[in-house]
């Protein structure tokens, strides 16, 4: 704190103030900052970003080139790839946001931001940008890894990639708003990782990410069908598995219409919960 730094300029007048920076520009600037912080945080990197790739690698070691399907025409690695993509989307959207926002609320980051002229929407744009970039990068890595390491054939029909597009976007959007909403559940930063990862892990087990969904007991299938991950995984299977696998689904169909409806309902529910419950300060603040 040297005196020679000239900080003694007169404060600006109250009457003529220059225009404030736009919310969109600040949203982009926040997204860049969020990405920098994300890729420097080892926990988030391992348990959200690289987790599906690590799991896929373990699965291919465990199951080897064992075949699955009516004529055992694809191996387990290819079969579990769509589930890993779906889980990855939920991890970088729901899990990452729920944990980091709970921590940011507890350590005062949100309060500090609230005390600046930053438009609140810029903060959320930053989070959306973070989820978009990390989920696209993660999916691309997963696909590249599966194609190069295990020779998994990626679909070529444009219709399948169109399905991929809307399932991906709806799933990521629902995961984002639900993550923001769920960040209010942990009571402190300390408890946030456990409170968030436990239900997330259970959902992965019952939603057809780690097991063949068909093999689960019916009541577990019904519970899983309430939550978005099951539909996200099913939608991804419809993109990456051969046509014959449709008959292996519980309903005998990819259920695209129902998938879109359920993901959209979660998206809207999540939005409403965000608007009603989001707080910039810890709950002990009046």
């Amino acid at each position: 704190m040297t005196t020679d730094a000239r900080l003694t300029g007169t404060p600006k007048g109250a009457i003529r103030a220059p225009a404030r920076p736009s919310a969109l520009r600040l949203g982009v600037s926040r997204a860049k900052l969020e990405l920098k912080a994300f890729f420097r945080e080892r926990d988030a990197l391992i348990f959200a970003f690289f987790f599906p790739i690590i799991m896929l690698a373990i699965f291919s070691v465990v199951f080897g080139r064992e075949g699955i399907g009516p004529d055992a025409e694809i191996d387990f690695t290819q079969y579990f790839l769509p589930g890993m993509i779906a889980a990855g989307i939920m991890l970088v959207s729901f899990q990452t946001l729920a944990i980091t926002i709970a921590i940011e609320r507890d350590d005062g980051t949100l309060k500090r931001l609230l005390g600046t002229p930053m438009p609140p929407v810029a903060y959320f744009l930053g989070k959306i940008g973070l989820v978009l970039v990390t989920s696209i990068a993660q999916t691309a890595l997963l696909l590249a890894y599966a194609a190069l390491m295990y020779g998994v054939d990626l679909p070529t029909e444009p219709a399948r990639w169109l399905t991929f597009g809307w399932v991906f976007l709806l799933g990521a959007a629902a995961g984002t708003v639900l993550g923001i909403a769920f960040s209010s559940v942990p009571k402190s930063a300390r408890s946030a990782p456990a409170v968030v990862t436990t239900p997330m892990l259970i959902l992965q087990f019952i939603s057809g990410v780690f097991f063949v969904f068909n093999d689960l007991p019916t009541w577990l299938q019904q519970i899983a069908s309430i939550f978005p991950l099951k539909w996200l995984a099913q939608g991804m299977r419809s993109v990456f598995l051969p046509r014959e696998f449709e008959q292996l689904e519980v309903s005998g169909s990819w259920q695209h219409g129902l998938t879109a409806v359920i993901l959209a309902v979660w998206l809207i529910l999540g939005l409403i919960m965000c608007i009603r419950t989001f707080r910039w300060q810890r709950r002990d603040a009046g």
């Binding site: 920076p21 900052l33 912080a37 005062g108 500090r112 600046t116 002229p117």
Partner: peptide, 29 residues
Amino acid sequence: IVLQTTGGHDELTVEELVRHFAGYYPDVR
């Protein structure tokens, strides 16, 4: 505002934070 509690933004450097926050204000140092 300088709050009583400090913390947050752990993974970002001094320079990154100051430059970023500068973007929030219409008339910055």
